[in-house]
Simulated scan of single mutants.
Amino acid sequence: MPLRYLFKQLLLPPGGLFLLLLLAWWWRARRPRLALACGVLGLGGLWLSSLPVAVEWGGRLLEREPALATAEWPALAQRAEAIVVLGGGRERGDPGWGGDQPSLSAMERARFAARLHKASGLPLLVSGGLHYGAPPSEAELLAAVLQEDFGVAVRWQEGASRTTWENATLSAPLLRAAGVRRIVLVTQAPHMPRARWCFERLGFAVVAAPMGFLGVANARPWGGWLPEAAAVWQSGQLLNEAAGLLAYPLVYR
């Protein structure tokens, strides 16, 4: 996990762009042309990744699965046998809550899954392991939120996975033991293509239930061409998903 974390932090925005700027400064005297190229790429990348309009464009490229219409929710019990909710990170030691809590992304997934469960009656599986090796697991936090805040009991918890591939491979035995072969999969829209690929690779029929779409009209002044801090984080998420879509078929055959 530390090496994987370091790799992502150094390559994805803003880390990779700051690295380019550092190289531009380092090479400014010895390799001025290369330094100029690094500086242009670094500054240009920071500007582009900070634009809501760039996030919108990137989201449209990655968000391949359409939204599941609310009218379809009650009929999900005829299309699937369980709802699988993937963990989306956690926030450490929030004094307001007196402990760790699911991240905002994970909370969005929990809320959406609770709505789907109440409409369809399908049982829930939550998947997500330890955050950098420290308990509680993301699955445990999600199960607590679903029970305490939404009044929904979770049937299965998978609390050892560290990646999307492990979400699928470690959830599969729990689902198969219960005779589940068709699932409703809940995660953010940019993450859905990679997540769906993982579960389908293991033989599950997947009904995609994406939410948290980024490829929608950004509703910002001047069309989203002004820099915004949130866009940098969202750009990093989109690039992470793009890299995952390319790497997963090569790594997990």
Rank of each mutant, 00 (worst) to 15 (best):
G45N: 12
L51M: 14
R111F: 06
G42C: 12
G133R: 11
L68Q: 00
E65W: 00
G88W: 05
R79V: 00
G39D: 10
F112E: 05
R111E: 11
V53A: 15
L104A: 15
V152I: 13
L22Y: 12
Q101W: 12
G128Q: 07
E140A: 15
D94H: 01
A119I: 05
L19H: 05
S127N: 07
L124D: 03
G121M: 12
P95M: 08
P74A: 01
R28K: 13
Q78N: 08
A139T: 06
V84T: 04
A139L: 04
A144Q: 14
A24D: 06
A134V: 14
D100H: 13
W57V: 13
F112T: 01
Y132G: 09
L86C: 07
S105F: 14
V55S: 01
I83Y: 01
A67R: 00
G151W: 09
A119H: 05
R30E: 15
H131V: 12
L20V: 05
Q101D: 02
L46D: 05
R28F: 06
L76Q: 04
R115T: 13
G87E: 07
V55A: 02
L41M: 15
G98D: 09
L51P: 04
G99V: 13
Q78C: 01
S127Q: 06
S103T: 07
S105C: 13
G121W: 07
L20M: 14
L141H: 06
G39M: 10
S50W: 03
H117C: 13
L86D: 02
G58Q: 04
G151F: 10
L23N: 07
A77N: 08
G99K: 12
S127K: 03
A29R: 15
A35L: 04
P32S: 14
W26D: 02
K118Q: 15
M107P: 04
A82T: 03
L21T: 11
S137F: 09
A80M: 01
G133I: 07
A24R: 05
Q78M: 02
L76K: 05
W97L: 14
R31V: 09
L51Y: 02
L46N: 05
L104G: 15
S50Q: 03
L22S: 14
G58A: 09
